[in-house]
């Protein structure tokens, strides 16, 4: 049901955890639908120096969280803002259709964290 890439990220998730005193924090999802993601960013000179995630959810939720951290590590904020949920799903060689809606929230968490960073620095 899941691609090899999804299973790889599920079994060996990258960048799990939480950055203490993060520059930006994004939390999305809700317990009713069964997926909650929390993403923390460390940002220096407009660049994402470090990123970590914690996720409550299914295999797809964990894999998309892991993948988004890999996609944005070292990127400029502008570049990171261009990443969409679809970008993440594509990078994982796709997700089962039923998961596209409910478990594909990682980019939303990223955008929420960037927004939080921008609000803090304005």
């Amino acid at each position: 049901m899941y691609s090899d890439k999804v299973m790889d990220h599920f079994n060996n998730p990258r960048n799990v955890g939480e950055i203490e005193e993060a520059d930006g924090t994004g939390s999305v999802g809700n317990p009713d639908c069964g997926d909650i993601m929390k993403l923390t960013l460390s940002i220096e000179d407009n660049k994402i120096k470090d990123v970590k995630f914690k996720t409550f959810g299914c295999g797809a939720a964990i894999a998309t969280s892991s993948m988004v951290t890999e996609l944005v590590m070292g990127k400029n904020i502008d570049e990171a803002e261009d990443i969409s949920n679809d970008t993440v799903a594509e990078a994982l060689d796709g997700l089962p259709p039923v998961k596209m809606h409910c478990s594909n929230l990682a980019a939303d968490a990223l955008h929420a964290a960037i927004k939080d960073y921008k609000e803090k620095n304005n």
Partner: peptide
């Protein structure tokens, strides 16, 4: 604190089949 499908996937790695009440 955790979701059922991810537990099932973990069990499946050991070739163990069970089921979950999760939405997934």
């Amino acid at each position: 604190f955790i979701e059922g499908e991810s537990i099932l996937l973990g069990l499946d790695m050991h070739q163990i089949a069970a089921s979950s009440g999760s939405a997934c």
